[in-house]
Design a binder for these strands. Structure first.
Lengths: 119, 119
DNA sequence: CTTGAATCTGACATCAGTGTCAGGTTCTAG
DNA sequence: CTAGAACCTGACACTGATGTCAGATTCAAG
């Protein structure tokens, strides 16, 4: 599929899709004229990439991670090195802290919202 | 207490504390010479502010929110307007989506980490 | 063929909190 | 009183994914 369709289906801008390519996160075939042609699996991949970005991972880390992921077409093409496992474990801990923070903020908002409801 | 101590106790840089003041999030008395003098309650407040920033709220929103929060010394000094409640409800939904995303990313990392463990 | 929509590359802007530096002033222990 | 630590303001840089614009090219339908 072409970039416009992929953007529409993933709700990710064309700009970002091209950026992912420069970062080595998302490959695309090219038509004879140079237009990008994405495989169906690109949809899932883009969604994953977005999730990982949202989790605070940087392009470099995502690039290391992607080949080790299951649920890619053809299964994982690599296994994480010990070094990468250590890094990912740290990222995981960071994500846990983020979740805890977010829950506290959510509770704070709930308090304020509820206090207003009781007015 | 002075800014250095507050920074140390909250693990927030002095730069950020001064920035919070310009944003109207954190007030401080001044010594005759002009140095900031924070009340004890500033520690809690700074922690809250950090959590809310981490949850993706911007300064403007936090400024609206802070006076409505419980657990401030003296209790809440304001109640959220209906307009603010609507905005906060939206923020809350966004935070929920963030948490869901983070959990998915965490699961992804766990998969990769575990796959490496089974090597 | 033609024409309009879609895509291409490259460059520059943005956001918003934070880092950092400079040059000056205040505080406090000795 | 004095030295050094701590603090002050103001300004500029940065980060890194994304928005946006310009000018050129390709694609696909009539």
């Amino acid at each position: 599929m072409r970039i416009g369709e992929l953007a529409g289906r993933t709700n990710v801008s064309e700009r970002s899709l091209r950026y992912y390519e420069t970062q080595g996160l998302l490959a695309a075939d090219r038509t004879p004229g140079g237009h990008r042609d994405y495989p169906e699996a690109a949809v899932d991949r883009v969604v994953r990439i977005q999730e990982l970005y949202a989790a605070g991972l940087h392009s470099d880390r995502i690039r290391q991670l992607l080949p080790c992921m299951r649920d890619q077409d053809g299964g994982p093409s690599a296994t994480a090195t010990p070094r990468l496992v250590a890094d990912l474990t740290e990222e995981r801990a960071r994500i846990d802290r983020m979740i805890a923070d977010l829950k506290r903020s959510r509770d704070t908002l709930d308090d304020v919202i509820e206090a207003a409801r009781d007015t």
